[in-house]
């Protein structure tokens, strides 16, 4: 009997921890090591240790690509926030029963193939797509606009794919918002604009930051969006990393790019944890509040 207990414990702990070690921990360490190795097209990487891959990352030519990629990802994040915040806010104003349905409808496309949705967008934005046709029908333009294969199309695609990831944390934060705080602010003479800016936004800051992270982080890696909507001219960080691993076989450079991406991620995460802690501190009524 004793042995069986040991057996169950052994398998339940051992299976997952060895899987995670072998396929998550070890590969991550390998990536960091490779980023410090020298380029070798045939054997992927070789000694000696060098910083040359990082040198390439901070090469001005590449920094333009990184800047563009970051700009597109940030714009998509901003658009998601500007659309998602009022949307999530309006949803929380609805009766309880409708809220669930609305959130369900918001999340539903998330369950369908993202490639299919990007394909649908390319259809939508094309020269003879719905947008151009309706603009022409209304007489707003004579010639169809070149919407597709541009940075605009990539930003549109990214914000389309990632909107649910912004709305979910915002909705959770807004739903938890303590309405007595708003009433207190009203009693103290704050108008609705002041209440929104000085109570609602600070109190939902963790949701805002979480949503932004959930859009920004995957956005930089979605190479197929840039591929299908950007027409191969406008690149995301994901495209550059992919090229290094699949085509040019410069593993150290590709690894260094990933390490830089992870460092950026960790910094943002750290900022998030800090902001959520500070709101939790402010949210409770401490002694200093009296």
């Amino acid at each position: 009997m004793k042995k069986m207990i040991k057996g169950f414990q052994f398998w339940s702990i051992g299976l997952a921890s060895s899987w995670l070690s072998l396929f998550v921990l070890v590969p991550s360490i390998l990536i960091v090591i490779i980023s410090f190795l020298s380029t070798d097209v045939e054997h992927f990487a070789r000694l000696p240790l060098t910083f040359s891959a990082y040198g390439k990352v901070f090469d001005p030519l590449f920094l333009v690509v990184l800047g563009n990629s970051l700009k597109m990802a940030l714009m998509a994040t901003l658009i998601c926030l500007l659309i998602g915040y009022p949307f999530a806010f309006l949803i929380t104003q609805l009766p309880q029963k409708l809220r669930g349905l609305m959130m369900f409808l918001m999340i539903l496309p998330f369950w369908t193939n993202s490639l299919v949705r990007i394909y649908a967008i390319s259809f939508f934005l094309g020269k003879k797509g719905l947008i151009n046709q309706s603009l022409q029908w209304f007489g707003l333009i004579d010639q169809p606009l070149n919407l597709l294969y541009s940075q605009f199309a990539i930003v549109y695609g990214l914000s389309y794919l990632l909107l649910p990831f912004m709305v979910m944390p915002l909705y959770n934060a807004l739903e938890k918002l303590d309405h007595s705080l708003l009433e207190a602010a009203k009693d103290l003479g704050a108008n609705s604009f002041q209440r929104f800016v000085r109570v609602t936004i600070p109190m939902t800051m963790p949701g805002i930051v979480a949503g932004c992270l959930m859009v920004l982080l995957p956005a930089m890696g979605m190479f197929y969006v840039a591929d299908l909507l950007g027409g191969g001219k406008n690149l995301l960080l994901g495209n550059v990393i992919r090229t290094q691993f699949i085509q040019t076989r410069d593993w150290p450079y590709g690894s260094a790019l990933s390490v830089v991406m992870i460092v950026l991620l960790s910094l943002m995460l750290w900022g998030y944890l800090k902001s959520s802690r500070s709101v939790n501190r402010k949210g409770g009524l401490g002694d200093s509040d009296f």
Partner: peptide
């Protein structure tokens, strides 16, 4: 971890 990093980590291993 972004998918792209998971992908290259797995490819490397």
């Amino acid at each position: 971890t972004p998918d792209i990093v998971t992908a290259i980590a797995l490819l490397v291993i």
